[in-house]
Design a protein around this nucleic acid. Structure first.
Lengths: 199, 199
DNA sequence: CCTTGAAAACTTACGATGTAAATTTATTAC
DNA sequence: GTAATAAATTTACATCGTAAGTTTTCAAGG
């Protein structure tokens, strides 16, 4: 009887709305991302998005998941463009900083630690883990190549924490522009030296 | 003529309001920090705070500055309780992690990068720089003692970024309790080794 | 074709928020 | 006591997310 939305209709709408949200974030800041503005961007009424998303939180989770997937792609490309654990580590770290600096709004949204109930969105969790996996995966390779020794898991977290911390300090305005990249490079060399086997 | 507020009256009110805001943050989360709730906590009408603060943004800036000053005190105490650059570095790092873990809401608010126009609040900037100074200051001493070589400013920021990243990972629930401290200790030893002079 | 009925979209409405404007209260100098 | 004015309150408004109610749209049965 009635017209019914196909799966691709739904997916299309969700995607267009996410794109509009990212555009608003980047061009007009977080305060411009309102339900009414989003609807206006798509030329629909303010309540229409509620047919496609649970609520605004659900929309933000989808945008974050999108961001994490783009982020993961950038990291994976960097990893695949380098040879050897040492070069891969550097390339991935540089790509990490580049993504954060070029997509500050996306990065801030992705890692906003005031986001409640992130665990309720499995797609978001999966996208985050995909990025994290690339960030930390090459540590084991570095150990296999004899570049490092220690607990791979902890060293991976260490490296990830360091870059993340540097980026966040820069995005918070507590570092000069380009500061995060410089700090990463310092880490890159110092950690490699400090974690070298034997001593 | 009319009653006029003394400077201490103003300072008192501002302080009591900041305390109420911190309490609301800690006990009921960010969404509970509304002008009406704040006013109710002080037993005044919702518009009264506007006699003492520009707007809500100004209140949050004051709360953040408060947090940074308490943070700076904790770091300075740690620095003054240890002897020798190596021990000071460890003590300050431990104090950093302790403050963040014991004051998660304050810490999150202080470093919330979604806060716009932070540069408009010189008191906040000064408080942040005060903390930064302690975080990075002992690096020069470490160099004077022959423990490290390199750019002191950059190494200080490096250390800060690493601890900050680890803390944020823990506050975001991505590390087990105590994980940030473990990661910091890993950094502490690895960086000392990696930054040692000559090689 | 037309009717029909449910899905989808829209319109309206509500409570909450930050805060501007208008109003009332309180205090002090004369 | 009274006038003047700072401080506080009350009222009001635009905007937010979204619940509820209404209208539109389109595929199937006659």
């Amino acid at each position: 009887m009635p017209r019914v939305l196909s799966d691709t209709d739904v997916a299309d709408f969700r995607e267009r709305l996410c794109e509009a949200a990212e555009r608003l974030f980047a061009e007009r800041g977080p305060d411009a991302v309102t339900m009414r503005q989003l609807a206006a961007e798509l030329g629909v009424s303010p309540m229409t998005p509620y047919r496609y998303f649970e609520d605004k939180e659900d929309i933000l989770a989808a945008v974050r998941a999108n961001g994490f997937n783009r982020f993961a792609v950038a990291l994976e490309q960097a990893r695949d463009s380098a040879v050897g654990a040492r070069a891969i580590g550097t390339a991935v770290g540089e790509a990490y900083v580049t993504f954060a600096v070029e997509n500050p709004h996306a990065y801030k949204l992705m890692f906003d630690f005031n986001q409640p109930h992130a665990e309720k969105y499995p797609e978001l969790v999966a996208a985050g883990q995909r990025a994290q996996k690339t960030m930390t995966g090459y540590i084991k390779d570095a150990m296999a190549e004899g570049l490092m020794s220690g607990d791979a898991e902890q060293i991976g977290l260490m490296n990830w924490a360091a870059i993340h911390g540097a980026v966040i300090l820069e995005l918070a305005g507590m570092l000069p522009p380009g500061g995060a990249r410089m700090i990463f490079r310092g880490f890159d060399t110092a950690l490699i030296r400090g974690l070298r086997p034997q001593d």
